[in-house]
Amino acid sequence: MKRTMKKMLSFGLVAAMSLTMLAGCGNSKDATNDTNVSNGQEEKKPTGDVKIGVLVQDVSGEEALGFRSYYENYIADQYGVTFTYTDELKDAASEKSAIEKFASQGYQAVISFSSNDRALQIETCEENKIYYAVAAGTLDQEQFEKYKTDEYFLGQVGPSMDTEYEAGVEMGKFFADKGIKTAAIYGAFIPNPMHVYRTAGVLAGLGLSYGGATTEEDVVGLIFADQGIDLSKISGDIKIVSYLQGYGDTTTDEINAAIQAAPEAFISVGMATTFFTQQLNAAGIEFSDIDSFTKSNGEAITNGKLVYLAGKYSSSVGPAFALVMNAINGNVIRDAQGNAVSLSQNYQVATDSETFDKFYKNDNGDNPIYSRDTLDQIIGDTVTFDTINEVVASN
């Protein structure tokens, strides 16, 4: 269901933590056989001079690993590009530092999978004259309106916030239609915007109100204000017996408590397949996630208790790479109004192994959905916004 993007309320950033990385310390992959040795590690020398830095907030999730494999094991070889990944970025300061490091080392562009403060990311890239594109998630409408004409902001290709909300709605409805009476919810990393919208959608899909509110805009605003879910504010026929978010020692204790509460379903808006598959399988609790079509998730839906997966293709990040390559080669893509590209992608849903296998097999191996042949349609001197829009809409 298509909705009009609503203005997202401002929200507090995750509390600042000490920096854990310097950009350039992550691994890179280049398409050549020549090597040199740096810092005790063998590093390939690139044949070309295109270097792209990648900002990452999640370094271990199934979805994140799928995106990385596509870039490093397919795109890098096909186009002779160097991708350098950061370590885990835990706050806005580390994102800014990473971009400045990339710029100082001659990188031409940054692709972002990190969302602590995308406004600051764009401003830092603008200051350092380095191209920037978002490959996972999107800016809220207010932010996009502010930065859409910035010279170095190329745009965003990924599920819009309304698409994230609808993904949560459909997942909640799946369990409501099964007739469950109790559930646990994993809100993952709120206040990450995509997780907020997904969680609000789950509540709507389950037929629940939050703080007396039922509309997307109102529930999203309340969750941002609460920085999570307050179980006392949930009303409806399905009882939420446990809520948890984040990951660490506390969350490990919380997943055990959630299992002890014996919910009929464990509904996750991200990362449950990474953190909790083993525990939920062992407990015999059906669970869902919004993640990606990976081998591990296939095993969970075939032999475990994963019964619903809303996923993105690992190669869905191909169009963001195309925006970057075009810009580096002198063709900065803009829409008819002269704005940065903003295209929404939908999720594919699998509730059984047969459907999962169809999506998984279509996007893995030597011929992913966004293969070299497909990307060559949207990389080139004559490529326009209409060309990219048409290809993304058809994939």
Rank of each mutant, 00 (worst) to 15 (best):
G61T: 13
K305I: 01
T32S: 15
N297T: 04
A76V: 07
D34V: 10
Q227C: 12
V383M: 05
G158V: 01
T215A: 14
G155R: 06
Q227R: 11
L343Q: 06
N116P: 08
A282W: 06
F113Y: 13
Y308T: 02
V56L: 07
D237R: 12
C125D: 01
G137C: 07
G304K: 10
T355E: 13
T82W: 04
Q278F: 09
E264M: 07
I328D: 02
M21W: 04
V37C: 09
Y85T: 03
G318A: 09
E170P: 00
E166H: 02
K312I: 02
D77V: 11
Y165M: 07
G168Q: 07
E123K: 15
S232C: 09
V219S: 03
P319K: 07
D289A: 08
R372V: 09
A136S: 14
Y165T: 09
P159E: 15
I75T: 10
F266H: 11
L222S: 12
L89Y: 00
K148V: 04
I223G: 02
T149P: 06
E127F: 03
A204H: 15
D150S: 14
G236I: 07
V392N: 07
Q57A: 11
Q260K: 11
K178V: 05
S288Q: 13
T47P: 02
I234Q: 06
I180G: 06
M325L: 07
